[in-house]
């Protein structure tokens, strides 16, 4: 029954709904979750709390790590040698996979992808952005990294080697972006504000103190 004199289909909205489960793995997840709840292994609330806790993680921990590395050469050396034990010095827990930290320089620019799925250093960067998990980013980054970088507004000189790191196994990568010029004497807290998520994936450079982007 048209309520305002026209006949339109209210089933079509601009806000996409969550898709009804249809894949085998989705039914498997639902069945396993319901069984665990029925048997009292975990509660529905505990599952929801865990999902919420992961969704609440942000790249702030990563930025804190980078700012510390920019200001403390010994810390940076330890970080490059052993990511897991060194971030633990800051009270950051990174367990289950090996954290490998790489440094961007004038000669070498790293950018990270997982061509197989969505491997990402979630404990320190939070959940990966949707584009990181897209087939487009995953397929194109290993083949046309400079085109992908250009779409992020990131121009790396051709004299700088772009090295795409495909995290195909038990390693999670964190990129130390180049420290912007004109930041001598800035506090670790102020420096951390210049370290964006994308700069730690390698699709961007760090911010300059005035909010612009550092030259690569």
């Amino acid at each position: 029954m048209p309520h305002d004199g026209h006949d339109h289909d209210h089933a079509t909205t601009f806000q996409p709904d969550i898709k009804e489960p249809s894949e085998e793995w989705e039914f498997l997840e639902i069945a396993l979750r319901e069984l665990l709840i029925d048997k009292g292994v975990v509660s529905a609330r505990e599952i929801a709390d865990t999902v919420e806790a992961w969704e609440n993680k942000t790249p702030e921990a990563g930025a804190q790590i980078i700012a510390k590395a920019w200001t403390d050469a010994d810390f940076k050396s330890r970080l490059l040698a052993n990511g897991n034990s060194t971030v633990a010095e800051l009270g950051i827990v990174f367990e289950g996979t090996q954290l490998v930290v790489v440094e961007n320089t004038a000669d070498l620019h790293h950018m990270v992808v997982c061509t197989l799925c969505s491997c990402y250093p979630r404990p320190i960067l939070g959940m990966p952005p949707l584009w990181y998990k897209s087939k487009s980013y995953r397929a194109r980054t290993v083949r046309e990294p400079r085109a992908v970088l250009a779409e992020f507004g990131t121009d790396i000189p051709t004299s700088t080697e772009v090295r795409v790191l495909d995290s195909t196994a038990d390693i999670r990568y964190l990129v130390i972006p180049r420290r912007p010029d004109g930041t001598d004497g800035m506090s670790v807290e102020a420096l951390a504000a210049l370290v964006t998520r994308d700069s730690m994936i390698g699709t961007a450079t760090a911010l300059q103190p005035d909010g612009g982007r550092t030259a690569a």
Binding site: E144, P145, T158, E161, R163, V164, L165, D166, D170
Partner: peptide, 27 residues
Amino acid sequence: LYQVVFDMDDVWDGDGEYAAGDTVAAD
């Protein structure tokens, strides 16, 4: 487990958008 680096040119033989000397590494 090793990190192994490949020259982009060895992988794509020019059919991509990369600069000479760019590389891709996988574990």
